[in-house]
Simulated scan of single mutants.
Amino acid sequence: MKKNTQRVDRVTKRLKTALGQSPRLDQFKREDARKVRNYMLELGSLTPASVKRELNIVKAIINHAITEFELICNNPFKKRDIAGLGEDFEKRDPFPA
C-alpha cells in the first residue's frame, strides 16, 4: 500500500513539474500529455518502459476522476506513443544466474 502511494506521489510530482502547474482536469489537452511524456523521457533516469508504466498511472487517475465526477471530457493520455518503446534492447533476466 505504501509503495503504491509513493508511486502515485512521484508520478503526480513529475506531472506538475513538467507542466509547471496542476491543470484542471477538463482543461487538459493532448499537448499537455506530450509535455509530460517528453519530460519523463528527457529525465534520463527512466526507460521508455518505465515512462509507459508511469503514464499508465496518470491515465488511470484521470479515468477514475472522469468516472467519479461524471465529467464529459477525454483522457489526453489515451493512446499516447512512447519513443523507444518496442525497439530492440537488452532485456534483463527475470532471475539472476
Rank of each mutant, 00 (worst) to 15 (best):
I72Y: 15
E54L: 08
G20A: 04
F69W: 05
R92N: 11
L46H: 02
K16W: 03
K2G: 14
T5P: 08
D9S: 12
V36H: 03
E70T: 07
S45D: 09
F77C: 04
G20V: 04
P48Q: 02
K78T: 14
H64G: 08
A65L: 06
R30M: 05
Q27C: 14
K91A: 15
K52T: 04
P48S: 04
A33F: 01
A60C: 01
L15C: 12
R34L: 11
K13T: 08
K78P: 06
L41G: 05
L85W: 00
K52V: 07
I62V: 14
K78R: 09
D9E: 14
F95M: 15
A65N: 02
L15Q: 07
R10I: 09
R10D: 05
L85E: 11
Y39E: 02
N56K: 12
P94H: 04
P76Y: 10
D32N: 15
D93A: 15
P48R: 04
L55T: 04
K3A: 13
S22N: 15
N38L: 14
T5V: 07
M40W: 11
E31M: 13
N75L: 04
R92W: 05
P23W: 08
V8Q: 11
R30N: 06
K35T: 03
M1P: 07
D93T: 14
L71I: 06
Q21R: 14
S50A: 12
F69R: 12
A18I: 06
N75I: 10
K52H: 06
V58P: 00
A60R: 03
K52E: 02
H64W: 12
V36N: 06
Q27E: 08
D93C: 14
K91Q: 11
A33Q: 05
K29V: 08
D88G: 10
S50F: 06
R14M: 15
P23K: 05
T17M: 13
L41F: 00
A97H: 07
V51D: 03
S45L: 08
P96C: 09
F28T: 04
G20R: 06
N56M: 09
S50C: 02
T5D: 09
T12D: 03
V51G: 00
R24W: 06
L71A: 00
P23H: 04
F28D: 00
T17I: 09
L85A: 03
L19T: 07
K78H: 08
R53H: 11
L19S: 03
D88R: 06
L55C: 05
V36K: 05
C73G: 00
K91M: 12
E42F: 01
